[in-house]
């Protein structure tokens, strides 16, 4: 998609002689690009595990978004006389100790957990891609310094930092999105840097340089679109990682605060009552684990599909 608009832009702006060669190269890229995505899709489709994961994951997403409107209960509505009841026809997942319907609470918890996964991944994507692309493109001393910094950060106890951030700035959900995203960008930066290092010696970048485009434009419009494949793979694998971190914080009472509930909060509540009301633990834990399972398999499948060389086995 991006390559397409690139062709148009090049065609409009470039001087006559370089335009010819530039558009030719761009066209070449376009053909290769589209076939790459088609190839990847057909390879992914053959991977039954990945397709099943994708379908189950989409089902969970749709259920979390639409489900709370279909269930005839409100997630905050308490029924203290009812208390905790086992799964039944009226309450498919049972009710918690305050008589709240667990199905609607689990689905709404899914909304929050998935939203954290999405937003924190976007934050980490933005930081990681820009950082990695800049380091890779600049090369030399700048690159060495920037990547040494990433190496140092890799050695830090990050979970502790996220906990400290949550303590320092209050337990706001939006802060948590940013805090988690801000610590999960390191692998992204490394992958993008490696990709950009390989690309920047290629002719189409040389063409862009000789056309006098700015560094910013070359990085944003020529290099980043071409490393999208590995970026998508890492992003798919970052989603479960950030969901895990959110659930971890919420489990400790430092993340999402009541009355809102993410899967981590529900697992914690279930864990406290599991001796008497095991369903309170089992349903949220099962959905959470299933989501992580699907995302991890999908990420592995995408990696094999987008970069067949990396599939060694």
């Amino acid at each position: 998609m991006t390559d397409h608009s690139e062709t148009a832009v090049l065609g409009n702006e470039a001087a006559p002689v370089p335009r010819h060669s530039a558009s030719e190269i761009a066209e070449h890229e376009l053909i290769q690009g589209s076939s790459l995505w088609k190839d990847a899709w057909s390879r992914l489709r053959k991977n039954r595990l990945a397709v099943a994961s994708l379908v189950i994951f989409l089902l969970i997403v749709v259920a979390s978004i639409v489900g709370p409107w279909l269930v005839p209960y409100n997630s905050q509505e308490q029924d203290l006389f009812l208390g905790a009841t086992a799964p039944s026809a009226a309450h498919w997942f049972g009710t918690d100790t305050l008589g709240r319907d667990l199905l609607v609470r689990t689905l709404e918890g899914g909304r929050i957990s998935l939203m954290v996964g999405l937003i924190a991944t976007v934050v980490s994507l933005a930081i990681g891609v820009i950082y990695g692309a800049t380091a890779g493109y600049m090369g030399g001393k700048v690159d060495a310094t920037m990547m040494r910094f990433v190496d140092l950060l890799y050695a830090l106890p990050f979970t502790i930092f996220v906990i400290l951030l949550m303590v320092a700035f209050g337990r706001s959900m939006w802060l948590m999105f940013v805090a988690i995203g801000a610590v999960e960008w390191l692998s992204m930066a490394r992958i993008v840097r490696a990709g950009v290092m390989g690309l920047k010696k290629q002719e189409f970048v040389e063409a862009a340089v000789s056309l006098g485009y700015s560094h910013k434009r070359i990085i944003l419009r020529h290099l980043i679109p071409n490393v999208l494949g590995p970026v998508i793979v890492i992003a798919t694998l970052t989603v479960p990682a950030v969901m895990l971190l959110e659930a971890f914080l919420s489990f400790l009472g430092l993340g999402v605060q009541p009355p809102n509930a993410s899967w981590g909060v529900l697992i914690n509540e279930g864990q406290q009552n599991m001796e008497i009301f095991p369903w309170l633990l089992i349903f949220p834990a099962f959905l959470f684990a299933l989501t992580l399972f699907c995302l991890n398999f999908l990420g592995d499948g995408l990696r094999d599909a987008l970069d067949p060389k990396s599939a060694k086995d």
Binding site: G264, I267, M274
Partner: peptide
Amino acid sequence: CLPTFVMGP
């Protein structure tokens, strides 16, 4: 896919 706070309980 089974983090500590799921595996533990």
